[in-house]
Structure formats: C-alpha cells, structure tokens
Design a protein around this nucleic acid. Structure first.
Lengths: 155, 155
DNA sequence: GGTGAAATAAAATCATC
DNA sequence: GATGATTTTATTTCACC
C-alpha cells in the first residue's frame, strides 16, 4: 500500500469528485500552496495512486437506456478460454465492464444497450454463437449507484 | 437521446480517455479551433451529455486489494425497503457500486476491502444485523476490466 | 456555428527558506 | 518538503467571417 498522508488523501478525494478544478482551487481546498499542490499531484500520478482522469457521460444521452448484468458460464475452465472470453467481451461496444469471478458463475458482464430489444439482439448476435459459453442468465438493472469517491479505509 | 454530431462524439471520446488534456490539445485532436472546442465542451456539459470529470485511483494503492460482488435478497419487496437498503449500502465506505435488479436477486453490491478477512468482517458487521436481508451470496473478483470510453452505438 | 487575435488567468519553474 | 515571485503557457472573450 502506497504511503498516502492526510494531504494526499484530501487531494485524491477532491480529484475524484472533480478532476477539472484548477490547481489553485485544489490547493485552496486542501490548504497548501499551489506549487506544493502541483508537485503532490504529480507524485500521486507517478506513484500510481492516481491512474487517470476521465469524463463521465450520460448513457441515456448516448441513447443507451437499458442496462443489464449477464452471468456467464464458460467451459472448459482453462486460462485460454477465460482470457479469450474476457478479451472478446471487453472489446464489444455494448460492454461497460467485465468481471472474472471465483465460485459458481465465471463472468459477470455489465452492458448498456438502447432498448430491451437491443439486449435480446446483443445476446443472440454476440453470445449465442460462442462455443465456450455453456449458459447465461441476464438481469435488467433498474437502478445503478456508483460511488465516485473512494478513500483508504480507516484503520 | 441528445443530438451528438461527429465532432461532439470525438470530443466525448477524447475526454473519457483523458479529461485533463488542455483545450488546445483537445481542439487539435478533433480538428477544430480552441475557441470552438471550448464552446462545444461547455454545451456538452450543459446538455447533460458529459456529467462530470473524475480522477481514477488504484484500489491497490489505497490498500483495498480484495474486491467482491455480493448478491443480496431483501424482503419485503416494497419501495421503502428497497430504497432503504440501497441508501444504506451506497453510504458504506467499502462499497463501490450498488445495482438494483429485476428478477431473482434484488441487489448486486460491488465492494473493495483490504483482505479476505476484511470481506468476512464486512459481511458480519454490515450485513448480518440487517433484518431486511434474507440471503446473500458473495463472489470474489479475480479480475475486473472496465471500458472507460463509452460511445453511441452505431446505427 | 466557426475563427483568430487580444486580454485574462493559470501552470510551471526555481531560488530561497 | 514547502513557499512565493517570475516566466511560460493556456483559457476565455469577442469582433468578424
């Protein structure tokens, strides 16, 4: 675990909440000089604590109203099949996220499509033909809340 | 669906990949003047296509090495219980994301904790006492790939 | 709706504490 | 390791196309 003091912690919190505030504002928010702030933030990137800065977009605004979670079982369970399916799923434009899991199901795939009809089409066109898939279940997502600010756990 | 032309689309793609590039670089990347670029990006925010800018952090660097997905069933299935549990889970510092689902399981909760022991502790301390929870299953995550650039689906 | 030049503001550097 | 004055660079505005 990287050593992150209270000031670093505050910087990381601020930048997760708003990555485009000016260095001056950021410095003021955490109570240090702008030049110090600049150096601290640079070090947080160099040390790999901050990995990047990304704009968030509205899926609705992009015409992708329906989200679903797909539990997928693949066989045989070997590295080649696992890595192959993971790379395949991650490369599909409908896919937001791919989880490789321990236990019962092998994958969880989070997708966003224009409609329920689009979800059906996705499953038929992208999954049905794959020989390694031995089964899947899909759950439509009613709501999704993501915590955008992640902190070191106290203690 | 918001009307997003090819230039908007390119801006959204660029800003999802790197939200802290300068306006000049962004303008150059999509082939427009900096002043035009500034105005376009402002409109994308005003129209709600871009919803924010966030730094990404390394969970490992913050000492949260273990991630898991928790399938949770709650009862009775009414608005009060659903909203109550959602708000509770979303407010926990270990929680990255909360999905409210249609079908079998009611919730999927994505957590990041320091260790497998921490996961056990989380389940005992945060979930066991809740009367509305009638069952849960947890799956440790081996790998997680997230697509950070989301585009309108072609066609 | 887009542009380029001028004005304003911020980032980056560095000598100093 | 942090600071503030200075230089360098970017953002923002606006009259014009």
């Amino acid at each position: 675990m990287a050593y992150v003091d209270d000031i670093d912690s505050a910087l990381v919190r601020e930048l997760q909440a708003n990555a485009r505030q000016t260095n001056r504002d950021l410095a003021a928010a955490v109570g240090i000089a702008p030049s110090t702030c600049l150096e601290r933030v640079r070090l947080l990137r160099d040390r790999g604590v901050i990995t990047g800065y990304h704009a968030d977009v509205s899926l609705t605004a992009l015409g992708r109203e329906v989200q679903a979670l797909l539990n997928v079982q693949v066989r045989p369970l070997n590295r080649e099949v696992i890595e192959g399916f993971k790379a395949y799923a991650a490369g599909l434009p409908e896919v937001l996220s791919v989880f490789v899991l321990a236990g019962g199901d092998d994958f969880l795939v989070h997708v966003a499509v224009p409609s329920v009809e689009g979800l059906h089409g996705f499953l038929m066109d992208r999954f049905s033909g794959r020989r390694e898939i031995v089964g899947f279940r899909s759950s439509v997502i009613y709501q999704h809340h993501r915590n955008r600010v992640i902190e070191p756990l106290g203690g």
